[in-house]
Nucleic acid binder design. Structure first.
Lengths: 223, 223
DNA sequence: ACAGTAGGCTTACGCTGTAAGGATGTCAAC
DNA sequence: GTTGACATCCTTACAGCGTAAGCCTACTGT
């Protein structure tokens, strides 16, 4: 019976807010936000549900923390680069983070207090605009416009009924089944003449819209 | 004991999918989506929870129906009007509908099968672009861009920590409390020099971004 | 050596969505 | 007119949810 040098093995990591949050993110990524419960999360951590409450206030707090960690994954616009390039990089990184964690966009609303990473992100984006020469008001316009586009695009992207791997034609057919084909002529046209063409991927639309927005803002800046 | 002519009063409306959906919407508008449960909804309809299942498949089905009813509230772009005007009208109507029912944007993702009103809406928007002279591909670009902006803007708008009625300064102060003031210099600048100025309302940003997008698309169309 | 406390566990409560099956009322066919 | 089918409602029950309350143990600072 060793007294001082006891059983060396267990090596239990002591559970912490950080560990809880990143495990929660992993779980939401793997099984969907719907099946993220305090009990499941605790189990994943080798612990009982109520133990979590020593490290987080409640489930809302966990969701807040998760969203903030997603924002922490977004590359901030780099100083010194041309502003459009920096912004394009940041936008791409934001879209990547939000599609990597598709649950994030769906809890972004209903979160009222942004975390430090979120604030830092917003601050950096604003700063990038200001340094490019935007007035405070124009920076506000640009920030609102660009980020609305990013979030809205991801919102549409993650809820598409098909993902890139599935057979598009099949999905389209099954979706149109309950409806007469010519109730929605323009949707049919779009589908047959554009979406079903080889090489189509909705994700590619992102760059067109973003480019158009950035160019317009740039024009407004230099006028 | 009247036999044939029985108790005349009850006049029970017989419960239907439509009645369930619109009551669900009213309830979500009033008390928030979080407190929309099958039991509450049933109670509001003067009925037991399980009775609902004779008219809807399950709760998911209810949420699908609710979203579709919100889309049904959106004014479609009118034929014959100049396309930018028609689109501006439609965008404003969409924003109004989505802010009238703030829960809608938060369940729009996670809904995989769009209802008839949603499809009709999309079809009409596409049709409006096509009639304005856009190619199929350009119409796809425009649709993606404009609607991403609308949804993203509303997403940000409904989750603002303040609403127009509350004291802005107070909210800003309390939000910044946990942080050192100069951690986020650009946010501070934006707040003091723009947001806290009298007359500010985030909602006003909508028109700037939308105008810029529509003008750019119009330029792309006429080139 | 001892007190305080941090971090785990157990139990319990009121809520959720919904599966299963029983009761009632209406209507069509014989 | 009776019967049987069907739609619509209700009751009961179950597993799972977030979390309040309180207990137990092991480490920490003095």
């Amino acid at each position: 019976m060793a007294r001082k040098t006891r059983d060396p093995a267990p090596a239990r990591v002591p559970l912490s807010r950080q560990r809880a949050l990143s495990t929660a993110i992993a779980l939401a990524d793997k099984e969907g936000l719907g099946s993220l419960s305090m009990r499941k999360l605790a189990q994943e951590l080798g612990v009982e549900a109520m133990s979590l409450y020593h490290h987080v206030a409640n489930k809302e707090d966990i969701l807040d923390g998760m969203v903030d960690l997603v924002f922490a994954e977004i590359e901030l616009p780099t100083d010194g680069t041309e502003w459009k390039t920096a912004m394009r990089q940041r936008a791409g990184s934001a879209r990547a983070a939000l599609t990597r964690h598709p649950w994030a966009i769906s809890i972004m609303d209903s979160r009222s207090s942004p975390g430090p990473a979120t604030l830092r992100h917003h601050d950096a984006v604003l700063g990038s605009c200001r340094k490019a020469g935007f007035s405070v008001q124009m920076a506000a316009h640009a920030f609102s416009l660009i980020d609305s586009y990013i979030y809205g695009f991801v919102l549409q992207e993650v809820n598409l009924p098909f993902d890139d791997s599935s057979d598009l034609e099949e999905v389209v057919d099954s979706m149109m089944l309950p409806f007469s084909a010519d109730d929605y002529p323009h949707l049919v046209e779009l589908t047959t003449e554009y979406i079903l063409k080889p090489g189509y991927s909705y994700g590619n639309e992102f760059d067109y819209g973003l480019g158009l927005i950035l160019d317009s803002l740039d024009a407004a800046l230099n006028s």
